[in-house]
């Protein structure tokens, strides 16, 4: 390491780092801490209690939250599954399909939705649905979620597939495997860390989406984010903080799981490696 370019030597590096971390995490920490507050007020501290967590499941809003959570979960599972299948097919087509006209344009088109402002996608989707007469409801939310989840599922799968040498497929093909057998017995297992990461990412993105969902959900259908928003409009109550904290925990759990899946899976054997030990 060249000491001259070591960032840590710059003046103010450490305070700046602390400031950034504080801005990023302070709100989350405050919400988490106050979710354990025994008070009805969201500002004054009156000791630790789990009453607001209990309130989510038993309080007057519990029925609404239960329904919304169920909607969110089913939509997230279905949207992430469908998006992952489509993204896997797209990645195989893009990376193993050889060169074809418009390949870089296709790649741009797949990743563009990540960069388009979400509100634009939301308005466009709503206009499109009403133009074709698609009834707004759970199904319209699901379709919209599948679409915007695809690029998020695509990125890790694409990255993984890029690192897999094409000779594995050739070897399997040479050893009498048909196209499907190559996919099931060789490609899927080797790609699986990427596929699982892609699925988890898509799942979280879907679970957490508010803007697009709010536009296309139709009357009476709520997901957890829209239900929380509806609830907050009538004033912030501590039970919302408890609910947010639960969602945060779920996200942390999934991200951690996705990280360990990526770590634990064996990496492809580096080609032409030098022997480490000799028999």
């Amino acid at each position: 390491m060249n000491r001259g370019v070591d960032l840590r030597r710059y003046f103010g590096f450490f305070p700046m780092t602390l400031l950034c971390l504080f801005i990023l995490y302070a709100p989350l920490i405050i919400v988490t801490v106050y979710s354990l507050n025994d008070s009805r007020s969201i500002t004054s501290w009156e000791g630790i209690s789990l009453r607001w967590y209990a309130e989510i499941f038993t309080g007057p809003e519990s029925e609404k939250f239960r329904k919304a959570a169920w909607n969110s979960l089913t939509i997230a599972v279905m949207a992430a599954t469908t998006a992952t299948i489509i993204a896997t097919a797209a990645a195989i087509g893009m990376i193993r399909g050889g060169s074809f006209r418009g390949k870089s344009a296709s790649f741009a088109l797949i990743s563009l939705p990540i960069m388009v402002p979400e509100i634009v996608t939301a308005v466009a989707t709503l206009i499109f649905f009403s133009a074709i007469g698609f009834k707004l409801g759970t199904l319209s939310i699901l379709v919209a979620h599948i679409v915007f989840c695809i690029p998020f599922a695509y990125m890790p799968i694409n990255a993984r597939l890029q690192g897999i040498d094409a000779s594995y497929e050739e070897a399997a093909h040479d050893l009498y495997a048909s196209r499907w057998q190559i996919f099931w017995h060789v490609m899927m297992p080797i790609m699986s860390p990427g596929i699982i990461s892609g699925f988890l990412l898509a799942f979280i993105i879907s679970l957490d989406d508010f803007i697009i969902t709010n536009f296309v959900k139709g009357a009476g259908v709520e997901t957890l984010p829209t239900a929380i928003f509806g609830s907050v409009k009538q004033g912030i109550k501590p039970n919302i903080m408890a609910l947010s904290t639960l969602l945060l925990l779920l996200s942390i759990l999934l991200v951690t799981a996705s990280y360990f899946v990526g770590q634990r899976r064996e990496k492809p054997v580096p080609t032409n490696q030098k022997p480490e030990t000799e028999a």
């Binding site: 000779s167 070897a171 080797i190």
Partner: peptide, 12 residues
Amino acid sequence: NTVFQNYALFPH
């Protein structure tokens, strides 16, 4: 059958 230059052994 082929023996590949990089062996292409299935890592999993």
